[in-house]
Design a protein around this nucleic acid. Structure first.
Lengths: 225, 225
DNA sequence: GAACATCTTCGGCATTTTTTGAAAAAGTTT
DNA sequence: AAACTTTTTCAAAAAATGCCGAAGATGTTC
């Protein structure tokens, strides 16, 4: 989530008609003075001013990267007040990871990477555009209906990976009652598998995969995708 | 939507551990050769290669901006095949505009800008972080449950502005049955106002505003926010 | 309005970028 | 394996960035 904000800031600056003004906009949004920012960056305040006034027409990306990170960092040191405004609601630790793929990848490839098995009678003939890894127990405890938005990154054409699964029933029930349906559900190392979970998968026509891969390996493998 | 993709590309490149590899990732995602990209940019292919190999540690943002725009442009000239993959689902014209504010703004300010009236008994003591303008008739015809995600940009702390409104009943019913609730609903120039709409607003405790401002003016005013 | 902090402007210099073109390397097709 | 396209490497020269520090302008607070 935070990563996305940083990317948004950087992207906006780069593509802006007036990069300097955009830098300023963000600095002011975070209520950081030039002096403060300069100190964090280890440069003199006049340098910041020069950037904001576009004395350099095309600052290097390292400079932009440092500026963005410094602004965020200053806010963090202060307690992250502005940051919190962007991380909708509470920064729940129920969501372990959210990722988007640059382009759709075939679900079958995704399955193979996970070393997973399709336990539902649903076809894997489709592409997904990202995945979300959710701690199923924490999710039930901490996520309210609105927070589900977070589970879906950009599109619903994504896989939902549930970890810490008992029987796989509650994750599927949650999906059943919610209007936003993922393209695929992955249960990570369930103790047992509730037939009802499979039934729901069938009803909703959402492929249900099961993997027993170690969680860290799984995350690593996915990151390589 | 397209703007966001460009921003994402630029932001990713700037903040990447390896900007060169990220440039390459995007070039390849769009299936553009170095030569082709070089031609579009008006530089020699070796230049592109040098960037991808980070011969320059911190290229200027103008360079990045040109690269991102060129890649997208090439795809566009070809028919926008890759671009389409990013505009999740159909580029519905039901959504007229989506915007995020850098920071929350008081709902009362928002109301004043619209020259709107609060027809519900709900308090305006809250901030919103963005708004979505939706053509209510087209929305009913073309948006399915999953597409509602699009209506909500980043957060649900936003105003939903419905245009082309008859009585304001169906927009409110849609909100009633959906788990994601906006912070405020604005009806644009309804012919009449159904009491049920107000009742739902009250039940859900969502302020219901009505404005008669001309749509173009309204969009313009909002853009100035 | 004096004292203060914040911001703006700019000369100047070391360091980098930007870019080319040519030649070599790597990958594809036939 | 020849013919082809695409990618890699690199020296060199002009241009631009990155940065400082001092002096002036602008705003704020007491």
């Amino acid at each position: 989530m935070l990563e996305k904000l940083a990317e948004k800031m950087a992207g906006e600056i780069v593509l802006s008609e007036s990069p300097g003004r955009t830098i300023r906009k963000w600095r002011e949004t975070f209520k950081v003075s030039q002096k403060e920012l300069a100190k964090e960056l280890g440069v003199s305040p006049s340098t910041i001013c020069d950037y904001e006034h576009e004395r350099r027409e095309s600052p290097g990306i390292k400079t932009i990267s440092r500026i963005v990170n410094s602004i965020i960092n200053i806010d963090r040191k202060r307690g992250g007040d502005v940051l919190k405004k962007y991380t909708i609601g509470v920064e729940s630790d129920a969501i372990i990871q959210i990722r988007e793929f640059p382009i759709g990848i075939p679900l079958t490839d995704f399955k193979d990477v996970l070393g997973a098995k399709n336990v539902s009678p649903c076809s894997l003939q489709r592409d997904i555009h990202g995945y979300t890894i959710v701690d199923s127990v924490k999710a039930i405890l901490s996520l309210n209906a609105t927070d589900y938005l977070k589970i879906y990154g950009w599109s619903t054409e994504r896989a939902l990976i549930f970890t810490d699964v008992r029987y796989g029933r509650s994750p599927m029930v949650a999906i059943r009652v919610h209007p936003l349906k993922p393209a695929c559900v992955v249960l990570h190392a369930p103790k047992e598998l509730d037939p009802l979970a499979i039934k729901i998968a069938e009803l909703e026509n959402i492929p249900l995969l099961v993997t027993k891969m170690n969680l860290n390996d799984l995350i690593k493998k996915l990151e390589e995708l």
